[in-house]
Design a protein around this nucleic acid. Sequence first.
DNA 1: AACACGATGGACT
DNA 2: GTCCATCGTGTTA
Length: 201
Amino acid sequence: MLSPGGLILPRSFYQRPVAEVAADLLGQHLHHGEVILRISEVEAYGGPEDSASHCRFGRTARNAPMWEAGGVVYMFLCYGVHHLLNIVTGPQEDASAVLIRACEPLAGLALIRERRGGRLQGPALLTGPGKVTQALGIDLTFNCHPLFTPGGLELRAGSAPAAILRGPRVGVPYAQPEHREAPLRFALADSEWVTHRQELG
DNA sequence: AACACGATGGACT
DNA sequence: GTCCATCGTGTTA
């Protein structure tokens, strides 16, 4: 099989407003080697006035990938410990990206468990942005990696979700109230593989 | 050169 | 619920 799973998503998929892409990322499949994950929870960041975004103080060396045209990866190291995966959206110069917060495992479960420490099972394996990148086996070296071309990390068409939940983003106490409370977190309504379920409506 | 600070996760009371 | 590991980055000097 030349293209296992769904078709690879074209670059145009990403060249839209970040909240729109975020919702449409739910149910799509991340492929890396033998591991395949179905995206179950995301958050939208960016736009000109988002005080929760890494780009709130303008362009820097770290956030440069967020200013690229949509379809590439923006990785960053959180707390010196966890690598977090973002998918850049919109046209070039539009600093926006979607944080991948949780996934469901579709393939490569044995490798995922091994990478996650060997003893865990169930949602504890993949409910959290740092857990997703550990399961995929990716780190800062994937910064700017294109998702719309075959090879390495890829995003492929999955199955459309039956229903979606929205709620405030997690872990952004430093943002202004209107940005803290904005319903920019999206999750599969029928999935157990979601963090902080109680905060979602 | 020095320093403060995280878009977290796991262990523990 | 609490505690805290750990390091790249941005800011300040």
